[in-house]
Amino acid sequence: MNVRSRPRVAVFKMASCDGCQLQILDAEDALLELAGAIEIVNFAEASSDLRPGPYDITLVEGSVSTPEQEAQIREIREASRILITIGACATAGGIQALRNATGRLEEFVRTVYPTPEYVRTLEDSHPVADHVPVDLELTGCPIDRGELLHALASLLAGAKPRVSTSPVCLECKRRGAVCVVVAKGEPCLGPVTRTGCGAICPRFGRGCYGCFGPAQAPGNAEALGRRFIELGLRPKEAADRFRFITGWAPAFREAAARLEEVER
């Protein structure tokens, strides 16, 4: 994944809240260095000067949630040498994937929107990688700025970015955070969630809610859910812990389904 010096970079969004793009604009100390290292040529959130591709590196936020986005993501892929998806929406379908496989899309649209006839949407919200090949996925809601900068700096240096697949617990312990499951009996998704956030929630005394998505394979989210049940959650409540921002990620989706079986 080597790129030439001062590569042309584009940032696009699909179905998303813009929070991951803001991680770039909020990069503070790193912004000047970033501006010197890359040339941002198409980034609607930052500038109305939108130039056409091809792009050396493209960052895509958001899920594929409408028919237009299905076509758009193919065009983006065509125009990009390296495609990096950023955030829970782009990598796992996002919170909007809660509608997936419910068979109740029409009902949701009618309930949420005052003029549902304007809404044209796909039955399911998909991660970008379901539609086009993706070179690198940075998960999180939002993404971790440090991980993004590390990925860009590595690509600029001609090195493979290091994106850990280990669980949040590893980082919790490195940083000396006390385990909220063990010391407080609080349900925490850290043991089965990918690290990258710096263990921010457990460091503030609350359980991880899994926004970085499933950690390494083979995973064992179901066993963690069974532990939640021992700690006092009903099976349905344990299942719902996995049905959140990254609930459509296969490892969480399957664990939730099996935990719900227990309830029945």
Binding site: C169, P191, N220, A223, L224
Partner: peptide, 29 residues
């Protein structure tokens, strides 16, 4: 069937010594 492979046992073990060596580079190189 119960193990989460979460690494906690190895992190709190006072003798576990395994480590990784990782490289970082600044944006300017």
């Amino acid at each position: 069937e119960r193990c989460l492979a979460c690494t906690n046992c190895t992190m709190v073990c006072p003798t576990c010594f395994c480590h990784d060596v990782v490289d970082d580079v600044s944006l300017s190189g």
